[in-house]
Each structure stands twice: as structure tokens, then as C-alpha cells.
Design a binder for these strands. Structure first.
Lengths: 130, 130
DNA sequence: TACTTGTTATACATATAATAGAACAGATGC
DNA sequence: GCATCTGTTCTATTATATGTATAACAAGTA
């Protein structure tokens, strides 16, 4: 099992699963072309309803993280080609503005934040491919 | 009015208000000791129910961003002394890990991210005080 | 044929978000 | 004193989000 779910968390189950799949791709734990468990299988593994997993897969498909075929099931998009377009960059900036306002007021310096970012980026794989 | 509310947003009203008050403090638009509108006044200004504003103030009070007295009403905590303790740093790291996994996969480099952070930090005031 | 696949539909329970109206005690200004 | 404003609390209702439950269907596989 490549997922660890916190049932007591206030983050919705489907969001936790989605987050871990996307970070999994970035960290190379999941490779483009690799297949994911079926909705029923993954739901059984985690111990939740298959509709919750289906919701995740539908959203991932909608955002082009995965492709779904009757034959091959759900696989990580082999041709990951997501763009950092302007709306995305805007939303990212807005999110960071709020997030780091609190961090700044708690005494986290710019240097610390940049160092943290560097460490996080180092956990991402150099080349995302098969 | 120092708040701009997006009613069509999927971000809850109370969360938008809370976010803008905290970033407002970081950016120097709101200074420690400064008083905020009463729950009824702010609600009337925005055009929402006063219970929603009350929810914001209660949370801000709970997290020590503001202090509330019968006499003075709601004021930004004059002695802002919030700590970046270990649980907070953990949650910040977890949030960033997810956030930048997607950014990374969309082609946003470490250098771009660090530059963005620098720009954001520059919008925060140097010295948070009266 | 039996089984698994993704997909869809309906229903239900619970929690969250937002609104609504009412009331109360403490403080303020006339 | 009296009216007004303050934060606070209570109950209630509506809408939405989340998660579960059961069932069914068409397409592909062994």
C-alpha cells in the first residue's frame, strides 16, 4: 500500500488520497504509465467505500493526472504535460500569500522558508518519466 | 472597507475574512492595538450575517490574533507573540509538500518558487508594531 | 459463462457553512 | 434613567460537502 490515510484528520479522505497520488508522482513513487488499483480494490485496501475512491479518480482524470480506459484501467498519464498557466500561478500566489503571512508573523524568516522549499524540491525526482 | 469578499468563491466566507485579517496584519494594513469593526458593523458592511463574522472573531481570539474586551471591543493583539512551534512547522511542511508537488510537475522551478517567496515576503512589513 | 472493469443512479447519514431571530449582560452617551 | 451599542449565547433552518450503502449496466478478460 502506497497510501497512508489518517481517518481522524479534518482533511477529507478523497483529498488525502488525491494529495498522496500527486506527491507520489512528483517524488517518483508513481511513474507515468504505471497503473493504479481499481476503485474497488483500493477502497477495499484502505477500508472505505469505493465511491470515495471513484471521486478521486474522476477528479484526477478531469485534471489530466491519469487516463482511464476500459482495457487498461487507471494509469498515471504517460504524457504528463501540465502547464503552469496564468490562472494556476495566480491561485498559487494567493495561497502562498496567506500561508506565509502566518509563517512570517510566527517568526519564520524568508531564508528559512527558502531553505524549506529547497529541501522539499530535493524530495522530488529529477526526471519524471518511465 | 479593508476586505474584499468573493461570494462566488469556493472558499468559505469566514475563511476569506480570516485570511485577509491575518495577511492584513503581516502587510501592515492592520496594526497591533488597532480596533476592528464590531461583529454587527462588519457584517452589515459586507452584507452577510453577523454570526459569520462572530465565528471569525472567535477563532482569531482562540488563536491569539486578537483580544476582546467588553470595553474596547475587538482589537489586534498588541502583544503578538505567536510561536512557530514544532506542530506548526510540521503542518506547514506537509502543506508545502503537497502544494509544490503540483507546482513542480507543472514546470515551476525551485528558483521561481524561491523568487515568488521573496516577492511575497517583501509585501510584509519589516516591523510589526504600532 | 463467470468475473472484474469503470460508470451511473438513488438513497441515506453526518458534518460544515451560512442565515435567521431572539435574548441577555456590560459599557457608553445623552 | 434611558436608549444604544457591545460581545455572547441560544435555538432553528437551509444548503452544501462528505462518506457510506446498494444496485445495476456495458465493456473487457479468463
Amino acid at each position: 500500500m502506497f497510501l497512508s490515510i489518517a481517518f481522524e484528520s479534518d482533511i477529507p479522505l478523497y483529498q488525502q488520497i488525491k494529495n498522496q497520488i500527486i506527491t507520489g508522482i512528483a517524488q517518483g513513487k508513481l511513474k507515468p504509465g504505471e497503473s493504479l488499483p481499481s476503485v474497488r480494490q483500493l477502497a477495499a485496501d484502505i477500508g472505505i467505500n469505493f465511491h470515495t475512491v471513484n471521486k478521486v479518480y474522476q477528479q484526477l482524470k478531469q485534471e489530466s493526472w491519469v487516463v482511464i480506459h476500459r482495457k487498461s484501467g487507471v494509469i498515471i498519464n504517460p504524457d504528463l504535460n501540465l502547464q503552469a498557466n496564468e490562472p494556476y500561478r495566480e491561485s498559487l500566489k494567493d495561497t502562498l500569500e496567506v500561508l506565509f503571512a502566518e509563517a512570517y508573523l510566527r517568526g519564520v524568516t524568508l531564508e528559512e522558508s527558502q531553505q524549506l522549499l529547497k529541501t522539499i524540491y530535493q524530495s522530488y525526482v529529477q526526471e519524471v518519466s518511465k
